[in-house]
Nucleic acid binder design. Structure first.
Length: 625
RNA sequence: GCCGGCGUAGCUCAGUGGUAGAGCAACGGUUUCGUAAACCGUAGGCCGAGGGUUCGAAUCCCCCCGCCGGCUCCA
């Protein structure tokens, strides 16, 4: 099934199934109204949520008799209903609606479901244009349609209810948001009222507690608290500014991917930030992606007219292919792997920007791999291994793959043979690697299919990180060739791939993954010496100097606060190791080691501390031990 | 980009037409302390920007910018 609700979107907001698919409800072939014991817990919860949506619609129509109703499905954490109302709903309206809903629920109205003819439905919902549109659609499959009535309110509905309103669990209306009718930007924007609903009060409370906990891990908040990065409207929206500590994290990420790629035959190139418009015209990007490219910059001609157009690069591929053309290549040189870490610029719409996860200046760990067609499976497997290694290093096991295929519509290059070859090759490589994936029609790049890796952020939004894309189109457009073993010139296949995706987005995800408590190798400050009194400062400085000489990031808290306060500050800064130094440690040339977890390892000789921290750093283990 | 909410000190927030506030952080001093907050003091603001209403605007109106939540989009 095509999932229209992918991308950066709250898990909790995602629909349980497609409300526009007449086939998909009620589940389990069950009657539209059932008793509690007839269904399992999950189905009962879905029914409570869907029933609550009916009550919501009832109440809203009572308050706004001229309002138009759209759809009201259950979602992972509750329900919503879309309305077209004469005025925007205010937070006060929301409280009023909630109050009325609880009152109606208390009246214990029964849900009565019945089937009527299409003609009856049309009459019945004569003043409801959205329902008329649904009737148009559903009547293609069936000449009878379901309606559900409670408290004198009737909704077009496939069913899926509890018996009566008192069976509906505890709920709270959470927010109102704009939502396009049928998810189509070209169609009217409706007001969507979201509600949270769980089977018990405890689960409802736990839901909101989870949201609060998630907010504490939010990378935007931690980025400010830990002084990792900042945004400033004077510099520009969507342009992340890394503070010294954030820059260290990024340098460590770059260091890691360079090491991994150097060991796998990658070669780093560097191609700057600008390229002529003609390049992007030939590659096809200007035609397909000009809306996310920053507007053209023009050279100044002597006569004052605009000269050649230049663009900030939104991606590297056409430049790398041009670079490939710098010399003639033999099949013996392939695979040729051009890696680059240069910042790219994409004009993301203002409403899309989100901390580090969606920015306008982003730095991919990009690479274009030039191969022969029969090297596809093998090379994709190598890339998959690299992805696996990277995510293991970060200790991030929770990701999923998507295989994005072409669909109908103009953007996909018209070359059926190339597409079917590329899709088959990519699918084979994924299967060979034993990777689970979901196929998505119509999500491919314009030049080829891709396998993308998705990870959820702490708020439940999914973000694409790694991507592996097969391109059988652009190399031909840009005239890339290699000399095959028979002496013929052939067009190489190009794999576009990024492993972190962008360092910016990945750092945002990492901050949340670790809740700001980076493993030692990534931590901006790896240890801090805490002298208990001023007379301990000399040894504390010596300890720090020795550790720094071993390549560790260590400082000394020489303020005049009490040790307890210094520990508290270090702990809140999430520094992996605090080295407390008092009389005993000065005497024995040691430091008392306190782990970030709160564990006290006691006094350890300096050599032993240095060896331990060095080992942690070099091995890049995820959890300090 | 669209709908809604929000923008007051570095951070978290109070202040709804009449002289800008608190806590924490910062800074100065005192204290020299054994595993998550010592004490005293000082400073800190074009109340996001611009325009308007008013005798008077943080407060009301308009417009812009930014942030947050959705929607749509995402090479």
């Amino acid at each position: 099934m095509r999932l229209p609700w992918r991308g950066p979107q709250l898990d909790g907001m995602r629909m349980a199934d497609d409300p526009f698919d007449a086939e998909s409800e009620p589940l389990q072939g069950l009657p539209s109204v059932v008793a509690r014991d007839d269904v399992d817990e999950a189905e009962w919860l879905r029914r409570m949520r869907h029933s609550a949506a009916h009550v919501l619609a009832q109440v809203v129509l009572e308050m706004f008799p001229e309002g138009k109703i759209a759809i009201g499905p259950p979602i992972d954490t509750g329900f919503y209903y879309d309305f077209d109302l004469p005025r925007p709903l205010t937070p006060e309206d929301l409280s009023e609606i909630q109050k009325r809903m609880r009152k109606e629920i208390g009246r214990n109205h029964r849900f009565i479901w019945e089937e009527i003819t299409v003609a009856e439905a049309r009459t019945r919902f004569a003043d409801q244009p959205f329902k008329q549109e649904l009737i148009d659609q559903f009547s293609l499959d069936s000449d009878r349609l379901g309606i559900c009535t409670h408290a004198g309110f009737t909704d077009l509905c496939r069913g899926g209810h509890v018996e009566s309103t008192r069976q509906i669990g505890p709920l709270r209306l959470t927010n109102v948001a704009g939502a396009y009718w049928r998810g189509d930007e070209q169609r009217p924007q409706l007001q969507r009222v979201y509600g949270a609903l769980f089977a018990t009060r405890e689960e409802l409370d736990a839901h909101f507690a989870r949201i609060e906990e998630a907010q504490r891990r939010d990378h935007r908040r931690l980025g400010r608290e830990l002084e990792l990065f900042a945004f400033d409207e004077l510099v520009g929206a969507g342009v992340p500014l890394l503070l010294p500590d954030g820059a260290i994290v990024r340098q460590e990420m770059e260091r890691l991917i360079r090491e991994l790629q150097d060991a796998r035959g990658y070669q780093e190139v560097w191609t700057g930030h600008l390229a002529r418009g003609e390049l992007f015209r030939r590659s096809g990007h200007l035609e397909n992606y000009s809306d996310v490219m920053y507007p053209a910059m023009h050279e100044h001609n002597e006569d004052g007219e605009d000269g050649d157009a230049y663009f900030l690069k939104p991606m590297n591929c056409p430049v790398h292919m041009t670079l490939y053309n710098n010399t003639l290549h033999s099949y013996r040189e392939l695979p040729l792997r051009y890696a680059e870490y240069t910042t790219l610029y994409r004009f993301e719409k203002s409403g899309q920007l989100s901390g580090l996860t969606r920015v306008r200046s982003l730095t991919q760990d990009d690479c274009h791999i030039f191969i022969t067609p029969d090297q596809i499976t093998d090379e994709v497997s190598r890339v998959l291994e690299l992805v696996q290694t990277l995510f293991e290093t970060y200790g991030m096991p929770n990701f999923r793959y998507e295989l994005s295929l072409p669909g109908e519509g103009g953007k996909f290059v018209d070359d059926a043979d190339a597409w079917s070859f590329a899709v088959r090759a990519l699918r084979d490589a994924l299967d060979a690697a034993g990777i689970d994936y979901v196929e998505q029609q119509g999500e491919a790049a314009f030049y080829g299919p891709k396998a993308d890796l998705f990870v959820s952020d702490v708020m439940g939004r999914e973000w694409q990180l790694s991507t592996i894309q097969l391109d059988l189109i652009q190399p031909a457009r840009l005239g890339c060739v290699y000399v095959a073993d028979d002496g013929e010139r052939r067009t190489p296949v190009v794999i576009h791939r990024a492993i972190h995706g962008s360092f910016e987005r990945f750092m945002g995800i990492l901050i949340e993954h670790y809740a700001g408590a980076f493993p030692l190798w990534l931590a901006p400050k790896q240890a801090r010496c805490i002298p208990i009194a001023d007379r301990h400062q000399d040894w504390a400085n010596d300890v720090a100097a020795e550790l720094r000489a071993a390549g560790l990031r260590v400082d000394v808290d020489d303020g005049n606060e009490r040790m307890q306060a210094k520990i508290r500050n270090g702990q809140r800064r999430k520094i992996p190791y605090l080295l407390v130094i008092g009389d005993r440690e000065v005497e024995s040339k040691s430091a008392a080691v306190r782990v970030r977890t709160g564990e006290d390892l006691g006094a350890m000789p300096l050599d032993q501390i240095r060896d331990m921290l060095t080992r942690l750093k070099v091995s890049r283990v995820s959890e300090p031990v």
